[in-house]
Every structure is written in structure tokens, then in C-alpha cells.
């Protein structure tokens, strides 16, 4: 439980960086995986989940009002669930745990976006309704903006922390049940899914750079690296 609370607080900090600060990649799954790994003592598992989630999320750009999953919730819940599951007694299989982590993370990303959207909508409405009359004193105006800023950061932190606390608790519980209940065939299925899921990432990459003047560069570089690695 203390680890789950610590991870939820970490997600709050990431949300402040992502929604209030300068978006310094702290909230990206691949880096979130590193922080979750350091916090739980399972960097290999957490980073493996983080990379797979990052590959899947690569094609989703926060532009033109696109509805995007809550990547912070996805990353923390996915990496956290896998890191906590691998610590369970009974030597769970690494690839299976990673697969469960990625799947739970993807679901948490979708659910997290739906959970936080109305709460962040309230925040947005409050900020939109603020009026400053021409009689407002300068000091009172700047002070009000300062407190709005501080309140805004605190609210964003609290919303993400609570949301991830709920999702991570649920995700870990579901993940633990899944690892206990499933038979050999389903374990194989989940493992095979984790081998195939980078293909979704590959498609995301192609989709991202499939512009007329970049297409050739992308294909040539991919072919050269593939051949070089094959030869080595």
C-alpha cells in the first residue's frame, strides 16, 4: 500500500509537469517507467512496460483538440502493476507480467482520461468564469492571478493523484487475479501479445513520419539498420 500511495503522488507531480509546467517529458511512459522502476526496485520490468506503452502512444499527438488517453495514468498504473506483480512470491513469468502491465496500463489510460476529464472540466469552467472589473486594484489583480496559479497546480496534482490511486489499486488487484486465474494457454496468449504489440508501435512510427518528403528517409534508415543488425 505505501508503494501504491508513493506512485500515486509521483503521478501527481508528473501531472503538474504535463498540465501546468513546461512538459519536460517526465510524464512520458518511457521516462515514467524509469521513475517507477527506481521507486519499486524493479527498473527492468517497469522500463519494459514503459517502452511498449510509449511505442503505442507515439502516434497520439496532443494537437487539434484530439481526445487522448491519460498517458500518466496509463504509464504509472501499467509500470506500477507490473513492478508490484513481479515482486509477488511464486516467481511469475517476466514476459507475462509485462504483458499484463501493458494491458492494464492501456485500460487505465482510457479510463483515466474519462475519470479526470469532468474534473479538469470544472477547473476549466472556474478559470473561464473569472472576471476582473476595471476597478480591480493592481496588487489585488496580480495576487489573485498568483493564487489562481497555485490553486490550479494543487488541483491538477490532487485530481491525478486520486485518479491514479483508484486505478492503480484496481489495476494491481485485477492483475494479481489474472496471474492467479489464467491457465497455460492464456499465459501463452498474453506473452505472444507482448511480442506482437511492438508492431502497433511500428505502425505508429510509420503513421507519424509518413509525409511525402520524409517517407523515403524513414524507409531507407529502417532498411539500413535492419540489414546492419542482421549482419552483425
Amino acid at each position: 500500500m505505501p508503494t501504491i500511495v508513493a506512485l500515486s503522488l509521483l503521478s501527481g507531480l508528473m501531472a503538474v509537469d504535463h498540465r501546468v509546467g513546461w512538459q519536460g517529458l517526465l510524464a512520458q511512459p518511457v521516462f515514467a517507467g524509469v521513475f517507477v522502476g527506481l521507486l519499486t526496485g524493479e527498473p527492468e520490468t517497469a522500463i519494459a512496460v514503459g517502452v511498449l506503452l510509449e511505442l503505442i502512444y507515439l502516434s497520439i499527438l496532443p494537437m487539434r483538440g484530439a481526445r487522448i488517453p491519460d498517458q500518466i495514468a496509463g504509464a504509472i498504473v501499467g509500470c506500477g502493476t507490473a513492478a508490484l506483480l513481479i515482486q509477488n512470491p511464486g516467481e511469475p513469468l517476466f514476459v507475462f507480467v509485462v504483458a499484463i502491465g501493458v494491458f492494464v496500463g492501456l485500460l487505465a489510460g482510457e479510463l483515466g482520461a474519462r475519470l479526470t476529464a469532468p474534473l479538469l472540466g470544472i477547473h476549466n469552467r472556474i478559470l473561464s468564469s473569472i472576471e476582473f472589473s476595471p476597478e480591480t486594484e493592481r496588487t489585488s489583480l496580480t495576487r489573485r492571478v498568483f493564487w489562481l496559479h497555485t490553486g490550479s497546480a494543487t488541483y491538477v496534482f490532487a485530481v491525478e493523484t486520486v485518479s491514479v490511486l483508484i486505478l492503480l489499486s484496481a489495476g494491481y488487484f485485477a492483475g494479481a487475479r489474472l496471474t492467479r486465474l489464467t491457465g497455460g494457454a492464456l499465459v501463452e496468449g498474453a506473452e505472444y501479445w507482448s511480442y506482437l504489440v511492438p508492431a502497433v508501435g511500428a505502425a505508429s512510427l510509420i503513421h507519424l513520419f509518413w509525409q511525402h518528403h520524409l517517407r523515403r528517409l524513414l524507409i531507407v534508415c529502417a532498411a539500413v539498420v535492419f540489414i546492419l543488425l542482421w549482419l552483425i
Binding site: 511505442l55 508492431a199 511500428a202 512510427l205 510509420i206 513520419f209 524513414l218 531507407v220 539500413v224 539498420v225
Partner: peptide
């Protein structure tokens, strides 16, 4: 685009490590 190509090459190089069928399925997927 170049670094994206490098990552693409790395991903496709790693698929056959889980069998040639995985490479074919990954291509289709």
C-alpha cells in the same frame, strides 16, 4: 524521420527472435 527509421529497423529486427511466424504476423499487424 531518420531516428524513427532506426527504431523501426530495430523493432523489425527483434520480431524474428520470437520465430519467423512472429515476423510475418507483425508485418500484417
Amino acid at each position: 524521420a531518420s531516428v524513427g527509421g532506426v527504431l523501426l529497423g530495430v523493432l523489425f529486427y527483434r520480431f524474428p527472435q520470437n520465430g519467423q511466424t512472429t515476423l510475418a504476423l507483425a508485418g500484417i499487424l
